[in-house]
Simulated assay, not measured.
Amino acid sequence: MKTIAVDMDGVLADVYRQFIDMHFQDTGEHLVAEAIRGLKEREAFPLLEKHVHTPGFFENAPLIPGAKEALQVIHERYKVFIVSAATEFPRSLQEKQAWLSRHFPFISWQRMVFCGSKEIIRTDIMIDDHFKNLDAFEGETYLFTQPHNENASPGRHLRVGSWQELARLLVTDVKAHPEG
């Protein structure tokens, strides 16, 4: 059975929506996607440091549309690991585990990997929204589109824009190569 490393923030958890909502709550200013497209997260969200240190930020992030249903189907055909860079924000460890357990109860705690750098990850496939994680990965890579990477060329990574698209690609691939 093939293995997949799935990023959490920006792939499963809609942290962009969380940042935009919290920015509005703090400033009354509406951030629009066009204004932050192509900007690194720290440039797009001037209050990012405050927000990621706010209790509940990671635990209350909304789901990316379609993530739960698609990952359930993928999980039936692949060995899925959730791999999240979490040690930069120590509070996030507990919150991310609680969030994953609530939204993805079919992913056991043994398949939740919280780390700093993802360069040690050795699965067959990696799904992430950051080039820094995908570029160091030796297997098959899928770049999940987010505003910060939208204007960049995906290079060797296959760009995906939704969980529905990703599930179609991965489930079709499994049917074509069932021994995988």
Rank of each mutant, 00 (worst) to 15 (best):
146 Q>A: 13
174 V>H: 04
99 W>D: 08
51 H>R: 15
121 I>K: 06
43 E>R: 14
59 E>S: 15
161 G>P: 06
119 E>N: 09
73 V>H: 09
52 V>T: 14
51 H>K: 12
35 A>L: 12
58 F>S: 09
31 L>S: 09
174 V>E: 06
144 F>C: 13
62 P>L: 11
109 W>Q: 10
17 R>T: 14
146 Q>W: 03
66 G>R: 12
10 G>T: 13
153 S>Q: 12
42 R>A: 13
118 K>C: 00
12 L>F: 00
147 P>I: 07
26 D>K: 15
152 A>R: 15
56 G>H: 13
78 Y>A: 10
127 I>G: 01
150 E>Q: 08
108 S>R: 15
94 Q>C: 05
180 G>C: 11
46 P>W: 04
14 D>N: 13
70 A>I: 06
16 Y>D: 11
88 E>G: 15
62 P>Q: 08
76 E>C: 04
20 I>W: 01
119 E>H: 07
17 R>G: 04
16 Y>E: 12
68 K>F: 02
114 F>V: 07
44 A>L: 00
2 K>R: 14
145 T>D: 11
127 I>K: 07
80 V>N: 04
53 H>C: 06
94 Q>D: 04
34 E>P: 03
67 A>H: 03
65 P>N: 08
20 I>L: 02
82 I>D: 02
93 L>I: 08
142 Y>C: 03
9 D>Q: 06
127 I>T: 05
155 G>F: 01
171 V>G: 04
111 R>V: 03
153 S>G: 08
102 R>C: 02
128 D>G: 06
82 I>A: 06
17 R>K: 15
101 S>K: 11
168 R>I: 14
155 G>V: 11
84 S>H: 02
111 R>E: 03
15 V>R: 10
37 R>Y: 00
163 W>A: 00
50 K>S: 03
100 L>V: 13
88 E>D: 09
104 F>W: 08
78 Y>C: 10
53 H>N: 10
46 P>F: 00
28 G>R: 07
129 D>W: 04
1 M>Q: 15
5 A>H: 02
42 R>S: 09
36 I>Y: 00
103 H>Q: 13
98 A>C: 05
81 F>C: 13
80 V>W: 02
16 Y>N: 11
72 Q>A: 11
142 Y>Q: 05
132 K>W: 00
48 L>E: 06
168 R>H: 13
117 S>C: 08
1 M>Y: 00
47 L>T: 13
115 C>M: 05
157 H>N: 05
121 I>C: 10
58 F>I: 14
51 H>G: 03
144 F>M: 07
127 I>W: 00
134 L>D: 04
156 R>M: 07
85 A>T: 13
16 Y>P: 03
82 I>G: 05
42 R>N: 09
110 Q>H: 12
103 H>C: 02
180 G>F: 05
52 V>Y: 05
42 R>Y: 08
78 Y>T: 09
124 D>T: 01
30 H>L: 14
47 L>K: 15
127 I>L: 04
56 G>M: 03
174 V>D: 00
36 I>L: 10
